[in-house]
């Protein structure tokens, strides 16, 4: 049962990931990304990380991809350009593909981690455990993250504000 679900989810995820890369239209790409994320959320559930699955959906699917779609539409790139083959790109693509294949091969052949059963639940399954981790051992990064978000917010406001509104005297 779990095996079947895994195969299904991973196939979905991979197919959609390829979709993101190959999609001609950016909207299709975004939708593929959405589905891919849904697949990963499903995998998270399989790994008993319910909390993370929901956070993933909330943050990524709910906000990030929506933002992508929003911007794609705002910039009206319906036509979109698929990747045409030009020498430089072909080279890059070839290199990347080769990297992909060799990397996967190597991990498959040499990266065996041993097929042991799961040892623990992982903190992602229990909200409480997760929160305790965040607010004790990792409190400092959480605080820093707050600053990061503040800075990002300020920056976004600054960058996207219309230029004519900027007060030169300020």
């Amino acid at each position: 049962m779990e095996q079947i679900a895994f195969i299904f989810l991973s196939a979905l995820t991979l197919a959609c990931a390829l979709g993101v890369v190959l999609a001609k239209n950016a909207v299709n790409g975004a939708m593929c990304l959405l589905l891919c994320l849904a697949g990963i959320a499903g995998l998270f559930v399989q790994l008993h990380a319910y909390l993370l699955a929901f956070i993933l959906v909330l943050v990524y699917a709910g906000a990030v991809v929506a933002l992508f779609l929003f911007i794609i539409m705002l910039l009206d790139m319906q036509g979109g350009q698929a990747w045409r083959f030009r020498p430089a790109q072909a080279l890059a693509g070839f290199a990347a593909a080769a990297l992909l294949v060799t990397g996967l091969d190597l991990i498959a052949i040499r990266g065996r981690l041993g097929g042991g059963p799961p040892v623990g639940q992982g903190a992602g399954s229990s909200l409480k455990l997760y929160a305790y981790q965040l607010f004790t051992a990792y409190l400092l990064p959480v605080q820093v993250m707050g600053f990061l978000l503040l800075v990002a917010m300020l920056g976004i406001i600054l960058i996207s504000r219309r230029i004519s509104e900027a007060d030169p005297s300020k």
Binding site: L14, A17, V20, V21, A96, A97, G103, L104
Partner: peptide
């Protein structure tokens, strides 16, 4: 594989 696809 996902990572590689993204990189590609």
């Amino acid at each position: 594989a996902l990572f590689a696809i993204g990189f590609l």
